[in-house]
Design a protein around this nucleic acid. Sequence first.
DNA 1: CTGCCGAACGCAATCGATTGCGCTATATTT
DNA 2: AAATATAGCGCAATCGATTGCGTTCGGCAG
Lengths: 346, 346
Amino acid sequence: MDTLEEIAKQLGVSLSTVSRALAGKKGVSAAKRQRIVQLSQQLGIEPNQSASSLRSGTAQGVTVFASIRATEVVHRRNHLLITEAKQAFGSVRMVIVNEEENINRLLRQTFAQGTRALFFGGFTPELDESTLHWAKENQLILCGVDSDIPGFDTIRINRSIGTYQAARLFLLSGRKNIRYICASTLDAPDSRLQGIIQAYQSLNNELDSRCLVSLLGASYSIGYRLGKELLSQGAVDAVFGYNDQVTIGIYKALCDQGIRIPADIALIGFDNLDVGEYLSVPLTSVAQPMQESVDAAIQLIQWRIENPHLPCKTITLPTRLIARDSAPIGDHSLREEIFSVPGEFQ
Amino acid sequence: MDTLEEIAKQLGVSLSTVSRALAGKKGVSAAKRQRIVQLSQQLGIEPNQSASSLRSGTAQGVTVFASIRATEVVHRRNHLLITEAKQAFGSVRMVIVNEEENINRLLRQTFAQGTRALFFGGFTPELDESTLHWAKENQLILCGVDSDIPGFDTIRINRSIGTYQAARLFLLSGRKNIRYICASTLDAPDSRLQGIIQAYQSLNNELDSRCLVSLLGASYSIGYRLGKELLSQGAVDAVFGYNDQVTIGIYKALCDQGIRIPADIALIGFDNLDVGEYLSVPLTSVAQPMQESVDAAIQLIQWRIENPHLPCKTITLPTRLIARDSAPIGDHSLREEIFSVPGEFQ
DNA sequence: CTGCCGAACGCAATCGATTGCGCTATATTT
DNA sequence: AAATATAGCGCAATCGATTGCGTTCGGCAG
């Protein structure tokens, strides 16, 4: 593996000049610079990044942490994030985090390897108080994308808006016996459930805990099993399926039993996967701000690099209901009433 | 950011001892090693990787190159690859390659940054002769996973087997007017089409070029458009859809027109996406060896690290047809005849 | 013609961990 | 007890690029 010294020797200039020429710094005449750049390309010599970042102390790229347990949407968002981060910062490393490993250690290692900024893509790491403190002290740049890092910049996704709209769609279109597949309970509602609760309150309705079905995992097959179970519960006429995979599983179970969608049962998913539009009955679903959240994250961190000392920022982006046939808006005049969201949500 | 010297000072030992202790090398007493490791964890000090790999010349992790244009399956395979590579090699960097950038330069940069091995995940890079030569000379370790790198280790996926089975399923179950969505032509058939051609030959049938429909892109929406077009072509009774996304698009277009699947038209996809099983008519599809190809790649490279001088290896893995309702095996006695594959395929 | 200024460029120290070599203290052998 | 082997450990050189500082040289004003 050749080094810059090779170029220096061949052209009879000093190592420093070669370094300056290739780094695009001033102090090199245009003619000499051109010859250096040309020869470097001809020989295929790249500056050794280990040496470069060791000496200069500056890291070249950014890092994205992704959970090994990420769902399909999260994967896609992370991929988008990596792609855009690459445009913005030049080089990106992706690190797959599995839950056994010590995230505190991993974070330190990552910065020891040299990284300008670190994105947490869709999972909330269990960072120790001491790690957070150390990160603040060393002015590390962390950004949670749909994940909370206390005291650091965050892109937050407001899931409540979409589920609020979904529940109101059910209620306003006259569904009586609705089921919500949920990962939480009324005592400690997660953001999806909060939106549902607010929808009921907004219509002076009460959400009965018997309407909640607890989620056991977020896959097609689990959805299929849940769908079968729902059928044994009698006159259910609407189901919110937690995410699209589960909902598609439910959809399949209902189809298999000859249930008509949406006539007998209306279905709403969450995530707005591409495939939902291509089911035989297109799926109504809550869309997440994929592109927007990624763009916001990149811009936030670019801003942060410029302004290391300003207090941390949280940017919240809304979800929104995409109405398709599996849960249609019956009366067109209801449209406004379903989609308008009270101010306190924003 | 603290360095190993801090530990050395606090414990009154030399820097070399700290380095040896943390790297797990011999030449340090058990007692001293324990104190060093403990203090390093307490202070949260990690060896600077830039310095480490600069000095030792050995890189710590591996790199996966992924194309920005990758399809869903390729993404999933790459993700699997990254996950497993991480287990096997400790640290993995993922690099998103977009077609504008010079892959030759990128490859050199990547190794300049220090990497043990480089996987090409599902796209064939246009590497110059000189780059390949340089890579060989410097004994770099490259591995194509479903992509060809001349002169280097490769995991190849034999797509022909699956499409051979698919075409035979159509023919043996009596379909007369079949369409194959293809990305190539009879003059220069790609691997999918080769399998189809062989299936026709095996049954003394001739594949008419009018049966081929050229693919314009591999998305749901393109499939939907193709599906509409197919309906205007009269008595089509079977369609192979190139991949599952296109096939699901076609499926939707057919459903919308009241076509019954598989009674009127049989459908076979490629990739065996999870969602295919959960369409109202489950999708028959050709499955790729996802896990197997990733495992093989990892093992191949581990072997290569041990044996740098042996000639390059190519491991070929088969695809296989997964029969579901969208293209059922009518007569059960045909099963054997459809799934058995002649020796020359293996 | 002299003096001054700034651009170009080389010198050499430096980043932090690694590692061959050599010294020392302890264990083992005779 | 003396001789020898061995493990522990420190010294200092080293990896390759970066960068502050000092030198040189050409240009330009006085």
